[in-house]
Simulated assay, not measured.
Amino acid sequence: MKLVADAGLWSTGATVEPAPLVAVLEVSGAVLAWTVDEPDRAAGITFTDPTRADWLWRVFGEAGHTAVAAAVDGRSPDPAQTVDLTGVSVSSDALRPLRRLALGHWLRRWWPASERDGIAALDTALLDAEIAVLTAAAQDFFTDDTFDSEVTSLLAPHAAALAAHARDGDPRVADLVERCGDLADDVGIAMDADAVSATRRDDYALAAGPRAGGAGSGAIASGVDSVNWAGVPPGIFDAAEQTVEWRIEARSSVESVVRVALSGLGSPNGIAVNLSSGTVTGTGVLDADGRATFPIVDAQHRPLTETAAWGHDWQDTTVVVGARVDESPQTRERIRTFARARLSAPPGDAFLAEILAAESDY
């Protein structure tokens, strides 16, 4: 094995895909990363503080732990520096439960739930519950606090939902809720057994509806665009392509009307929307229904006139929802393919939320 310089830190040098194709887990003293749809590709390990990584012997063996500790010895690597550690290798068996835990966190952030694409949403309460149980089981890798070691934040929001789930009659669900109850007792969370809140969603709040604009709509121009997943919070928007619908209208002024298809699992209220078409631009924010109406201005930031709007070429118009990020449609389709494969034949590392989604009549 080699240790290489990676942005001022030591790394094992394994190559993984960038987000949203990477599952990441922060353990004590290191960050572990895997490409989600390539289970045979090696994990990337980047050491943030090797002195805190008391778990190294579990992954590299006792001799490997000693060799890694001696190689880094509190020193930051120089650019392009490499250290060969002969005879040291990573135990894939030791990392397997951590990979599954990282995958669970990835599912929370990147699962491409879509009514349009027929990809069922995952039950958030059950997913977080299973991640919490796996986190507790991996405490040997969380000897101090990390971003991913916190159990309370996973369970506390779902106490009522999990209590309601316990009455579903599915023994798999009941077993998970029982384990969460024991864990909740350990961390001081009250699990309300009398809670009656509904937990399972069998539909979505809304889809984008008919195409914006179009023949006879009275719009000056209209079109569609897609949401970049990395630019928005998780679980809010339908994850299909071309779910952003826009049109240009002449009212008291020239305005853009944007509507984005929602998943129904969160509110888009306040998320920024930016429209650009050459030198013509507009900025607004979505409301709770995924709609935004805002004025269009020219290069001098003056309100665009109706005459100018009719004469403008709107063919290259783009609409950005949320932050501007570099993300390709091919990457998103790769993730949809991954999700569909897990639903059609849940693998051994599938979470209960995935299994139930696969079994549903969605």
Rank of each mutant, 00 (worst) to 15 (best):
A33I: 07
N228L: 04
D37R: 14
P171E: 09
W57V: 13
L262M: 02
D117R: 15
V24C: 07
A323M: 09
P97S: 05
M1W: 15
L127I: 09
S76Q: 12
R251Q: 07
G231C: 11
L126R: 13
D148W: 06
A121I: 07
R251T: 05
T86L: 13
R109K: 13
A14G: 14
L343Q: 08
G213N: 01
D203C: 06
L275Q: 06
A261R: 09
G348L: 04
A341D: 12
L183S: 08
A7K: 15
A193P: 05
D316V: 05
I45M: 10
I119E: 05
W111N: 12
A308E: 09
A94G: 10
A357N: 05
P329N: 02
G266F: 01
M191N: 00
W310L: 07
S197W: 09
V319K: 01
A357H: 07
V258H: 02
V177D: 07
K2F: 13
G214M: 00
K2C: 12
G104K: 12
E245M: 09
T82A: 10
D202K: 15
T317D: 01
D148S: 08
Q315M: 04
R247Q: 07
A163S: 15
R324A: 03
E150W: 13
V36M: 11
S277F: 01
V258A: 00
A261I: 08
M1A: 14
V31Y: 08
A120V: 05
V187L: 08
V320W: 00
L122R: 11
F147Q: 15
V224D: 05
Q139S: 15
T293W: 01
G181H: 05
L154M: 06
A80I: 04
G29D: 08
R96D: 06
L101V: 11
S91G: 07
W10H: 15
G311R: 12
E150C: 11
D202V: 15
T12C: 06
A345I: 07
A341Y: 08
S276Q: 10
G216N: 11
L107T: 12
L262F: 00
A19E: 13
I335V: 13
R109N: 01
